[in-house]
Design a protein around this nucleic acid. Structure first.
Length: 278
DNA sequence: AATGTGGCCAACCGCATAGGT
DNA sequence: TACCTATGCGGTTGGCCACAT
């Protein structure tokens, strides 16, 4: 009996990122638990999923939060509590983990301070309990505390595989529009979810294919949901080692796919994804 | 220069939930 | 209906880094 190697933990290496991106771009997401084995990763499926969702996934916006985003987070946290996924759903391109971290390390203190200040100025009482998750909308008024948006500085994205790097290279527009977000939290804004229509040609699931990379076969389940699982064609990246392998889906034309996504090129010299159209 | 301290954030862990059998 | 598995979510941890002493 062959014992499964103990899943690797800790920080992901660029090589691991490369493998995961390449695998998902090529085959999509069909089963997180099985995927690492086929992708040649020693990680748990859970770890792969987390890495993809929080870091490698297309459209993930990283770097400083602007003032509008901060205010939105503060407002939604007050309304929804620590339901980070719900808050993230209303902040396009931000992950729940990012929002959670940002809240815990920065915004939380600011809100507490703000509440303390407003409490002390609003009443002469010396003992006043500040409820962090108060539903009192009146207490949501922000102090004029400088935020990162007040001190714009260039973002530094160190990860060469960051999707943001592909499309926006270095500059990040601080005027990032939040107009998609209704100020009314009751109107739910869902994040963009790729559908089959986003693909140049439909993937054919329910077929059996062989992965030449690992010399194994796998059954693709028809019941597999498209929700949050497919890589949009807009972000089809070329990974040389994988392109050298034959495509496994009959319906896919590698060349057509590549030309339809030619805007993203990998610069092997600088180990960086660039967009020549930007 | 060495050490201590705190902030930041990627990643892990455990539990909840959804969906399939 | 009960059980099992995969996935999602939120809390927490650990390591790295910058800064202070």
């Amino acid at each position: 009996m062959v014992r499964q190697p103990y899943p690797k933990k800790g920080t992901w290496t660029p090589d691991e990122d490369h493998k995961l991106i390449a695998y998902i771009v090529r085959y999509g997401i069909w089963n997180w638990n099985e995927m690492p084995r086929f992708a040649g990763l020693q990680r748990s499926g859970k770890s792969c999923r987390l890495r993809w969702m929080n870091y490698l996934r297309p459209n993930v916006r990283r770097g400083n939060f602007n003032r509008e985003e901060e205010e939105t987070i503060i407002r939604l946290q007050k309304q929804l509590g620590n339901r980070w996924s719900a808050i993230a759903a209303r902040l396009p391109h931000r992950t729940d983990n990012d929002i959670k971290n940002y809240w815990n390390t920065r915004l939380k203190k600011r809100v507490i301070l703000q509440n303390n200040n407003s409490a002390s100025s609003a009443t002469t009482e010396t003992s006043f309990s500040v409820e962090e998750n108060s539903s009192d909308a009146e207490s949501s008024a922000l102090l004029n505390i400088p935020t990162t948006a007040d001190f714009p500085e260039p973002f530094a994205y160190s990860n060469p595989f960051s999707p943001l790097s592909c499309h926006q290279t270095v500059e990040v527009d601080n005027s990032y529009s939040m107009e998609e977000n209704s100020p009314d939290a009751d109107s739910l804004i869902l994040p963009y979810i790729p559908t089959m229509a986003d693909f140049p040609e439909p993937l054919t699931y329910g077929t059996t294919f062989s992965s030449s990379g690992c010399h194994q076969t796998v059954e693709i389940d028809n019941s597999y949901s498209t929700r949050e699982t497919f890589v949009s064609s807009e972000y089809y990246w070329e990974i040389p080692s994988f392109l050298e392998q034959p495509l496994i889906d009959e319906g896919l034309d590698r060349e057509a796919l590549w030309y339809s996504h030619h805007q993203n090129l990998y610069d092997p010299v600088n180990d960086f994804w660039v967009n020549p159209l930007v």
